[in-house]
Simulated assay, not measured.
Amino acid sequence: MKRLEGPRKTVALLVGVVLVMGSLSFAAVPMYNWFCRTTGFGGTTQTAAKPSDKILDRTITVRFDGSLERGMPWQFKPVQTKMDLRIGETGLAFYEAYNPTDHPIAGTASYNVAPYNAGAYFIKIACFCFTQQVLQPGERVQMPVTFYIDPAIAEDREAKYTDHITLSYTFHETELPAEEASAAPLPANDNDRVN
């Protein structure tokens, strides 16, 4: 078999590098998401199917924050701004969303926890952020999040000193589901108005 020489070898190497880099960039997002979910990196929370089976005497203050992506026309806020919970105790908090427009709007919430080192210990059992939310014109809803702080936080070298955690949500407008979009009236524009 003849060896590649000169320009052919260089081209083959460059094509190989491009293929490897393309493959790595394609896998980067799923790998980063997996890493954040596994470690709590960047304040990423964890999920569980049931409450904690252990409750400690120590309490942590959980603060709640809500915001909207630029251009998202909803109003969105926590119903209560904070609560004190024993570590391992199940908490139930509500956020309120309101659609002041004349058409349905779909939204999805992104979230994080601060300080970041507490993210791995903030466990959600149920949350409105797990699914897309659709609000009809003028609709106001209260959306629950059920959670607890994992007792393992008391053993973490750095996180064990945490005495307050902030849970933040940001709602982003998303495309309406097909059945909602087909039923929604089209927004009026100036050309359709009759004087």
Rank of each mutant, 00 (worst) to 15 (best):
M1G: 14
L4Y: 06
E5P: 01
E5M: 05
P7T: 06
P7Y: 05
G16I: 02
V17R: 03
S25T: 14
S25N: 13
V29D: 09
P30D: 10
M31T: 12
M31F: 10
W34Y: 13
C36N: 14
G40M: 08
G42E: 08
G42I: 14
G42V: 11
G43P: 09
G43N: 07
T44V: 12
T44F: 11
A48M: 11
A49C: 04
K50Q: 13
P51F: 05
P51I: 05
S52N: 07
K54C: 13
L56D: 14
D57E: 15
D57T: 15
T59V: 00
V62P: 03
V62F: 03
F64S: 01
F64M: 02
F64E: 01
D65Y: 14
G66Y: 03
L68C: 07
L68G: 09
G71V: 13
G71Q: 03
M72Y: 12
P73G: 14
P73T: 05
Q75R: 14
P78M: 02
P78E: 05
Q80E: 15
T81P: 05
K82L: 02
M83P: 00
L85K: 02
R86L: 09
E89L: 07
F94A: 04
E96N: 04
N99A: 06
P100M: 12
A106C: 00
G107F: 13
T108L: 15
S110A: 15
S110P: 04
A114I: 09
P115W: 05
N117L: 08
N117R: 13
A120L: 07
K124F: 11
A126M: 09
C129R: 05
F130T: 12
V134G: 07
Q136P: 01
E139C: 03
R140C: 00
V141Y: 04
Q142V: 07
P144L: 09
D150R: 04
P151Y: 08
A152M: 07
A154G: 05
E155R: 09
D156P: 05
R157D: 14
A159R: 13
K160G: 02
Y161V: 00
D163S: 14
H164Q: 11
T166P: 12
T166A: 08
S168C: 06
T170Q: 14
T174M: 01
T174D: 11
E175K: 03
P177R: 10
E179S: 07
S182R: 15
S182V: 12
A184G: 12
P187L: 13
P187D: 13
D190H: 01
R193E: 13
